[in-house]
Write a protein that binds this DNA or RNA. Structure first.
Lengths: 344, 344
DNA sequence: CAGAGTCAATGAACCGGTTCATAAGAGACT
DNA sequence: AGTCTCTTATGAACCGGTTCATTGACTCTG
């Protein structure tokens, strides 16, 4: 509990070596499972370690080895429920491989992203998984190219030199849009996040592709971007539904924004399904258990976490792999009662 | 991008010292804002650092200093959406103070908790925030008492020597139960998590206290503990509603279990509010936007995160504070349409 | 039995900072 | 000028491991 006497109390390799009657180098070799160490000696050293309650100092190991066995994960905001799934799976894979996860939030600001990359370097972090607020940001790109450790992009795709794992948001949005068009909707409003980043950008592309295929020109007044919080979604929905010519369908394409949207509709006494069709950009308990249940796009964030961690491990191992590997997780549309044929 | 030449490329204090024409000690003093360094020299050193692109090696600093500026957070499973709020706020406070957050999941198993504590020691982590699967577990208690760094308990209260931040789950459960009793319910089923841990234990206490005050003896067949996943909640609800004499109210007291419960009710075509009253142990978009909206217990997890980080910082600073400080965040009941007078 | 070859163990040097006893230099005072 | 303070800079030692050139013991061979 006290931190003062720790320094002196702590047992070091020297102490173990003395107790076992061997050289410090031998203790180190036992610690690292070096092959050239006699069974008898190994046992003596292990007994000494157990007897003295020895514990290696990872800090000292890191310093000498030049690697820390730390992997950093920096995402916009880990307050996004479904993102926790990604982190959970990634952490499990990394821990299995002997790595520890560092966590930081970028708050979606380039300066913070750059500062974090610098902090990770100072800590001699062995690998990084991160999102970017803006893939085209010059300073961020420069910071990334100068990073001495491998960086894995999470749901970003514009930096060709880096490995990345993405979800096929384009396809998801296209499916959702075609579904609504097929139901006869022509005034489809869309809520997306920051289109400087891959997910919202590709959702928008998918939306436009589907409209174009159907020979329809979307009304630009029905597009709301930069919807990043529940409050944003609330305001955007309220404003859309107050238009003189309101949409007949609402595609809430940003992650975890459904709550804000439904809150607005409830406030305005607009019935989901009847008054307006709704499609959610990500699935959730809320989407599934709402009345009526909400049609939603779904993809496997846990698999994304596993893949991101696995690919990063390969890269950290220094395997000879080509640069800029990209893995895409498919999206699918779960059709539920919130999307109905347009009323005449 | 390549990791091979890094070792030789990296700029060290020596290089800065040579460039600036000073001793290494002086560079170190500049780095640490030591007061006894002349302005002229400081500027020369800073210019040299900028010119060479110098960056300190935190690993080396940690080794010498004996502290790592790392804080570990180990919780059962960060797949719990509302818990992300706790982590988010704690991380912000810690980062502000120059600490980096390490994250690990205990999967609610004592062996893992002990192993993690050991791993944190090896990393010379400066402080720990964690939950415990079982506060009475002997080996875990021993591991905690041997921890050389301060440990902060998250929503646990049985280890008097440690600082802790808890929510007043007892009061929340009491309010919820009294509310249901006041509506005439006598057969109230309760779903709780692991009662070896503080939250579920105190919710159960609150429930019993409220029953006892009302002079009612709860039917033990209506209590389901160890409900830890959505699937558990589904099965428990289904089984309860299949009883010959089913409950008239359901108190889903575990965190984030509401989805499983509602799914079961839907499958069985039991209407929330009419067929059965429901109270949720934690609030969520789902509870708020369900039809009917679900009465729920609410508390400020963000504040818990802030307080946990702040108290841990004080402790790490080595302030002279009494041991085992406890901070409790209040809970309140948000009454919505899912809890109605019992039908005759 | 000498010499070559194998295999294990040794311990000094190293990783990259910080610390602190010591020295050097600048003023102040006698 | 000499002595005493006070301030500031110096650099060797240290933190706790790992590495590797070297040594020593032992086996094998001709």
């Amino acid at each position: 509990m006290l931190s003062q006497p720790r320094r002196s109390q702590t047992v070091k390799v020297r102490d173990v070596a003395r107790e076992a009657g061997v050289a410090v180098g031998t203790v180190s070799r036992v610690l690292n499972d070096h092959p050239t160490v006699a069974r008898e000696l190994r046992e003596r050293v292990e007994r000494a370690m157990a007897h003295l309650g020895y514990e290696v100092d990872v800090t000292a190991q890191s310093m000498r080895a030049g690697r820390s066995r730390l992997v950093a994960c920096a995402i916009r905001d880990f307050d996004i429920p479904r993102f926790a799934l990604f982190i959970k799976e990634a952490e499990a894979v990394l821990r299995e491989a002997g790595y520890t996860l560092l966590l930081a939030s970028t708050t979606n600001r380039p300066e913070v992203e750059i500062a974090l990359l610098r902090a990770f370097r100072r800590r001699r972090v062995d690998g990084v998984m991160m999102t970017l607020s803006d893939e085209e940001h010059r300073d961020v790109r420069e910071a990334l190219s100068e990073a001495p450790m491998p960086v894995m992009l999470i749901d970003r795709d514009r930096i060709e030199a880096l490995d990345r794992v993405t979800a096929d948001h384009r396809q998801g949005a296209r499916l959702a849009t075609s579904h609504l068009l097929g139901l006869g909707h022509r005034r489809i409003a869309m809520l997306v996040g920051d289109i400087k980043a891959f997910p919202s950008r590709s959702r928008l592309e998918g939306f436009r592709a589907a409209c174009s295929t159907a020979g329809i020109t979307p009304d630009p007044r029905l597009l709301r971007d930069n919807v990043l919080s529940s409050e944003d979604a609330y305001r955007a929905t309220a404003s859309l539904m107050s238009l003189a010519n309101p949409p007949t369908a609402l595609f809430v394409a940003a992650m975890d924004m459904l709550g804000g949207c439904l809150r607005a509709l409830r406030t305005m006494s607009i019935a989901v399904g009847d008054g307006i069709s709704v499609v959610a950009g990500s699935d959730s308990d809320l989407a599934e258990l709402h009345t009526p249940p909400i049609t939603a796009i779904e993809w496997d964030l846990a698999a994304m976490g596993r893949h991101a961690a696995t690919m990063l491990l390969e890269r950290m191992r220094g395997d000879e792999i080509e640069c800029g590997r990209a893995l895409t997780v498919p999206t699918e549309l779960i059709i539920r009662g919130s999307s109905r044929p347009v009323a005449n």
